[in-house]
Design a protein around this nucleic acid. Structure first.
Length: 293
DNA sequence: CGCCAGGGTAGAC
DNA sequence: GTCTACCATGGC
């Protein structure tokens, strides 16, 4: 089936699909021809492209609500940006440079968890390759037109497959055991990701729970909280954001610890600190890759 | 060939 | 609490 979703118009922060998907948050999107993008969301293969003020997609079932949530089409984007850019000229300038940027709300916290466990000391390209390898080996084949993709396997599927497939993939840095460990906790009910995703679970609690897992430290717990658990105040601190934040705001002060930096950032940017952090990341990331914007 | 990649961990102080 | 070596793999 084909469908169209209207995109709420914003002159301040217009929607730009290609740039939104290039944000290095969700690693499995592929570019097709004529502006189409191929993705696998929550077990569904989907093709998307932007047609001016609408999002056009092809899928086997109606994915309206899933896509609205994923792209935050129901949110007041201008209001979100206003929370951190109205009182911060520097951040307002950065927001103008990256008008389109959005924090995606990934539908499967488990997949997001695996992705960012694999992100430790690894390149974005390698992370994407690992996720595709896991999907092709343990997921289910899905097809749309000539496009063949694989769903991301459930924790139950990963657990039942055991250590051999993951070990064979040579993920490096004990990542295979970290993934299997997390899958075991989810399947036994010791780790309830849907509860952590609930608005009743505060950011600090979700973060602390995630950090009890092997291979998940402060940074990766923040990434999962921000990208998949609906905790917009999570502020992942990596080398890019640290350098960008310190050079912009504290160029001469001594080094802040990660904990201090996170607290300062939340005090400065407020509830949507994570969105501000993504702007900082985008700035540093684009510069490092030689892109002007 | 060497260096780096959206860090985490254990062990030392 | 902070600092350090080490971790495995692929890209460039």
């Amino acid at each position: 089936m084909q469908a169209r979703l209207p995109i709420p118009s914003s002159t301040l922060h217009p929607f730009d699909l290609a740039n939104v998907l290039d944000g290095s948050q969700d690693f499995r999107w592929r570019k097709l021809e004529q502006g189409w993008h191929s993705g696998v969301l929550d077990g569904n293969i989907v093709h998307i492209r932007q047609d001016h003020g609408a999002l056009e997609y092809r899928a086997h079932t109606n994915l309206d609500s899933l896509l609205i949530s994923y792209f935050c089409l129901h949110e007041d984007i201008d209001a979100i940006y206003a929370t951190f850019s109205s009182r911060d000229p520097d951040m307002a300038a950065l927001a103008r440079a990256y008008l389109y940027l959005r924090v995606l709300r990934q539908p499967d916290p488990w997949e997001c968890m695996v992705a960012y466990i694999c992100s430790a000391n690894n390149s974005v390209k390698s992370i994407g390759r690992i996720l595709e390898d896991i999907a092709e080996e343990l997921g289910e084949r899905v097809q749309l037109g000539q496009d063949i993709r694989y769903t991301f396997p459930s924790p139950e599927r990963v657990l039942e497959a055991g250590p051999v497939p993951l070990r064979t993939m040579r993920l490096g840095l004990e990542r295979h055991s970290h993934i299997l460990h997390a899958a075991g906790l989810i399947c036994s009910g010791e780790l309830d990701l849907s509860r952590l995703s609930s608005s009743e679970t505060p950011y600090a609690e979700a973060r602390q729970r995630l950090m009890q897992l092997r291979g998940i430290g402060p940074k990766i717990a923040d990434c999962i909280s921000l990208f998949a658990l609906n905790k917009p105040e999570a502020f992942p601190i990596d080398t890019h954001i640290r350098r960008e934040f310190m050079s912009r705001y504290f160029p001469t002060s001594p080094r802040l610890s990660d904990k201090q930096l996170g607290e300062v950032a939340r005090a400065r940017f407020g509830k949507y600190a994570g969105w501000a952090g993504q702007l900082l990341f985008k700035s540093r990331w684009s510069a490092a890759r030689g892109n002007g914007a």
